[in-house]
Design a protein around this nucleic acid. Structure first.
Length: 366
DNA sequence: AATCCGGGGTT
DNA sequence: AACCCAGGATT
């Protein structure tokens, strides 16, 4: 008859053994640098390893130390982040680098509790850094940990409820070994990512096949429990792409909307994506009356975010006169040369449009 | 407690 | 089309 203590040890030992035999060789696992561990964890929030890996390499190359990151221009940090999404991560990354550099002598605080006070570091990331860099036995609860723990132990708390985090945090806190917290946290995440996957988990070769609640009760597809689905709504965005020779007129997004800090074009939103002559806009009206020419209307692009379906249409306007250029600059639009455009951070759909548009121009020349 | 915030890969 | 990814901040 096993007591509960040995069952707990069995779980963490089995998990860690599996990890040592199956782990991927990832760059942030070969360092004890809190800077590099922190960087990887911020990048990997809500992001698959395969998507985050090239960004991690770019960041470590461009910003070898946290001082390099702190001293960088915000735009350069955002440009390096371009395409990863959830851009508040990049803004908080920069903000945090400055705090560490200016207030902490370049060293991260070494406890979970203190790490939580830094911008962009929440319960998961705080636990990851505390355990990986400083060996503090605090459980890191990410999507993988929720899935593995709920299936193996039959924990059916609803992930949609906020109190559920504490249930899993305490459950995993009972299991994490004091002498090996970093391997335990790495292991439960790697096991969830590679073996105990959301769909088609590899139960036949699973080290927990004889003790897993979900397998025994055939509930792999029911665990973890998540009742509330994110609601997706539609938005229609119409971009007036003002062009004058090789310069484009851009605007830096601010406020609480999507893509904060990134640059896009003059944007009009409506209930649809109208033809250009259906658009009523003072600036457009004035420009057209001063000789501007509509040179291209794009098809409607569908760009999907996790909580929005964006329907986006681009209207390229050749503004023609320098009088019109002045009018645009008075409307808070900033002129960028085609080459300089590459250096500013843009939403991926804007980047894609510019590549296609400029590519078409090149094709016409050939 | 509910909502917002990206982009991409899998199924 | 639905799901979800090494989640956190704001309302």
């Amino acid at each position: 008859m096993e007591n509960s203590t040995s069952n707990k040890q069995h779980f963490s030992n089995t998990l860690i053994n599996w990890y040592h035999q199956n782990k991927r060789n990832l760059p942030w696992r070969n360092t004890t640098s809190a800077y590099h561990i922190w960087l990887s964890e911020i990048i990997l929030q809500q992001t698959r390893v395969s998507q985050g890996l090239p960004y991690y390499q770019q960041f470590t190359e461009k910003f070898p130390t946290i001082q390099d990151l702190a001293n960088a221009q915000e735009d350069e940090v955002m440009r390096t982040w371009q395409g990863l999404g959830y851009y508040s991560r990049a803004r908080n990354l920069h903000k945090c680098a400055k705090i560490i550099t200016e207030n902490f002598l370049g060293k991260f605080p070494e406890s979970y509790k203190e790490l939580l006070k830094l911008p962009g570091i929440g319960p998961y990331t705080g636990a990851a850094i505390a355990s990986f860099a400083f060996k503090e036995p605090v459980p890191a609860i990410d999507g993988n940990a929720y899935r593995v723990l709920s299936r193996v132990f039959g924990l059916d708390h609803d992930l949609s409820e906020s109190k559920t985090f504490r249930k899993f945090f305490e459950a995993s806190g009972q299991l994490i070994p004091d002498n090996n917290p970093d391997d335990y946290n790495q292991a439960i995440m790697e096991f969830g990512a590679m073996h105990c996957t959301p769909k088609n988990p590899n139960c036949q070769e699973c080290p927990f096949i004889s003790s897993c609640f979900a397998y025994e009760n055939n509930q792999q597809h029911l665990l973890p429990v998540k009742t509330k689905k994110t609601k997706v709504s539609k938005r229609h965005m119409n971009y007036l792409v003002f062009r004058h020779a090789d310069t484009f007129f851009m605007k830096q997004r601010s406020g609480k909307d999507i893509w904060q800090g990134l640059y896009d074009f003059y944007c009009l939103e409506s209930e649809n994506n109208p033809d250009i002559n259906e658009i009523e806009d003072k600036l457009l009206f004035s420009l057209l009356n001063s000789g501007a020419i509509v040179e291209h209307e794009s098809t409607v692009y569908k760009h999907v975010l996790s909580h929005r379906q964006l329907f986006i249409r681009f209207y390229v306007i050749d503004v023609q006169s320098s009088a019109n250029v002045q009018m645009l600059e008075q409307s808070d639009l900033i002129a960028f040369e085609k080459e300089t455009l590459e250096e500013i951070p843009k939403p991926i759909i804007i980047d894609k449009f510019l590549k296609i548009y400029n590519g078409e121009q090149n094709l016409l020349i050939l």
